[in-house]
Design a binder for these strands. Structure first.
Lengths: 373, 373
DNA sequence: CCCTCTCGTATGAACGTTCAAGTCGCTACT
DNA sequence: AGTAGCGACTTGAACGTTCATACGAGAGGG
């Protein structure tokens, strides 16, 4: 209203290109810095008329708060570190890459962003220490938690916020994780195969001892006993390597009767089954059912039925847990779903192509009526 | 030397946990803020004795400069945006994911870091605009440049630093890109197949019109004519889809004589050839040579010879171009290399497993004596 | 009528650096 | 001898916010 105390050369138009500051907006709207700040951060504290005027000026001047200044003053980066690995063990499947993408997609709704970093493999903790000490990030999203992982204890000790994608098997008292219920996924696979009419369902997994692998195998065991199909339920083991898998699959097929199916702990292992089957003239789907795990693009390419992880939902949960109130979520265990393709269909529907699709093809849309526990 | 003007309670030990600031270091070393700053940023401006003392205190107090404060004062974020996409077209191969990882690995040596962001697909530019206006990033690394991509002109107009992974086909005057010489890669593949003794070498590519695909095809054409193998050199086309590829491959095989080989524009297309070959009882490698492109993990899994892109080197070049002096690099075109697997070996060496390896297996170590133009 | 309370807004200071412009002492040129 | 120049270091200010606090006006209570 009273607008004649500013005697400096007031220009109506946006003068130069240098980014406008909060002070420019304040002057233009005839209020103080703080009111502009409030208009953005605590709109309820500003009289509605003033608020409107300020917001109008913000729009007109195309003002965007300067992130570094906010970070400095707020003493918070609103950023989180995500460790990426020069794919030594970039096994089949970029679940983690996809997880990073989904985290990034969800970041804005938490007024945060992600900073990628690659610690020295010889001293991973130092990498975390450094990026944290610089104030570049407030915390971390862990993925690919190893057995006896040094990171969770280290972070815990320093009170650094973090969340893990993948259960913290070593630290049962910790609840800040999201994971996908591998057991439930494999259970679904077993039921699906039983319904499809396969006479016998075997398991091809990793050597016992890996928590993830054991969990998935448990799903198979539960499925088998639940069906009462019991009788004979052969299993085989192979490490994550195609040749090994092919060999193990061949031996497994020897022990399975006709019309059998195999559920696998990974798409790569499943690939081994496909290969072993073809080697003896069996057509996947028609002659032997095969189901993989992870729904990698290889699975899509090979028309392999596979258990799909709801990565987008996992990312959302991770954010909630990371930035939400300390009280909120507890651990989250998500139910995966099956992407059915030709490798588990006995009917010859898909013969002209390579299989029809009952489920969203690439699956990447993610998250059906996603269930959570 | 003179150390008795500080009368405040001087504590020798690190007192509280709040992060030490440059002032704490200054006091501890008996110098001014600016000298500490200089010790870190312009060591040549500091007397060696003082320098040593300051650095010692920095170490002792575990001082790390506060990134936000630096960014604010320097008016530079030393950060660059990298757009990630919710993998609609996450076709076979995570070249881009791997590129992101390698960029991240190289970031520290340029005193920079990467911020991932996912713009609204309906207004990509707005996403760039916003993250830029907030001062969170100084520039961008583009990847997956589309035809008629709006981003390069937009960035150019605003003088925003950027570099592209992938040629800027639309803007020949722009030189700030790194790319992999697809033509040269395919040429290598053709020569390799000829040496291996395949009688005839066909091409399975994408429909004409995509710059990348046409470039790769040119490598095949060059290879064929260079070898004088000429005569009959059939080609076929398919879009990036396994069924299409399998069909096209079948038709292509019909037109090829015995002992022929096929070079493909992608691993997925090559997968189609493998499949078509097996459908008619041909053993890849022994009966028909197959080479793919991208050296995805699918290629590794299927023992498919493939052209490997030196992604790590590409990332390094991208950084050089992005943060280096305006004068430096010009465009960089990197030579890919061939990862040879069973699918292009006529001898039966690999029969017990699935093929022996002449080249670093997973290839991810990247970058042989990487050649650059 | 005075006192207290609340609401809306304003002011000074601070966050932790680096820039720009000093000061001081010494050397070396004219 | 005067002074310009240089090297080593210091000081005030600024970067653009938000925190903590203060202020003034009006409402409500005794």
């Amino acid at each position: 209203m009273t607008s004649d105390e500013s005697r400096e050369p007031v220009l109506d138009a946006v003068v130069a290109s240098p980014r406008p500051t909060i002070v420019d907006v304040a002057e233009a709207a005839g209020v103080s810095r703080q009111t502009v700040s409030n208009a953005l951060n605590r709109p309820d504290k500003v009289a509605s008329e003033t608020l409107e005027r300020v917001l109008r000026e913000i729009e007109r001047l195309r003002f965007t708060p300067h992130a570094s200044a906010q970070q400095l003053r707020r003493r918070r980066a609103s950023a989180y570190g995500f460790e990426v690995n020069p794919s030594g063990h970039r096994r089949l499947g970029h679940i983690l890459d996809e997880f990073l993408v989904q985290l990034t997609v969800s970041a804005p709704s938490h007024a945060s962003h992600l900073v990628a970093f690659a610690p020295d493999p010889d001293d991973v903790i130092a990498g975390y220490q450094q990026i944290l000490a610089s104030g570049l990030v407030d915390g971390f999203v862990l993925a690919d938690t190893r057995h006896a992982d040094p990171r969770p204890p280290w972070l815990l000790e320093r009170n650094v916020p973090f969340v893990s994608f993948g259960r913290l098997w070593d630290l049962p008292e910790l609840t800040r994780w999201v994971d996908v219920d591998g057991r439930a996924g494999v259970l679904q696979a077993v039921r699906h195969l039983a319904e499809a009419g396969y006479a016998q369902i075997g398991w091809l997994g990793w050597p016992t001892g890996s928590p993830v692998g054991d969990d998935r195998r448990q799903g198979w065991a539960d499925g088998i006993s639940g069906l009462g199909v019991s009788g004979d339920a052969p299993t085989a083991e192979a490490v994550q390597d195609l040749d090994e898998a092919t060999g193990a699959a061949a031996r497994l097929l020897d022990r399975l009767g006709p019309d059998a199916a195999v559920v696998c702990a990974s798409d790569l292992l499943a690939l081994g089954v496909l290969r072993a089957a073809r080697n003896r003239g069996l057509e996947p789907g028609r002659d032997v059912g095969v189901v993989g795990f992870d729904d990698t693009d290889v699975a899509a390419a090979m028309q392999l039925t596979s258990v799909h992880q709801p990565v987008a939902e996992a990312a959302r949960s991770a954010w909630d847990m990371l930035v939400g109130p300390v009280s909120t979520p507890g651990p989250v265990l998500l139910e995966p779903f099956l992407t059915v393709r030709a490798s588990s269909r006995r009917d010859p529907t898909g013969l002209e192509g390579a299989g029809t699709r009952a489920t969203p093809e690439h699956g990447w849309a993610d998250d059906p009526p996603g269930t959570r526990h």
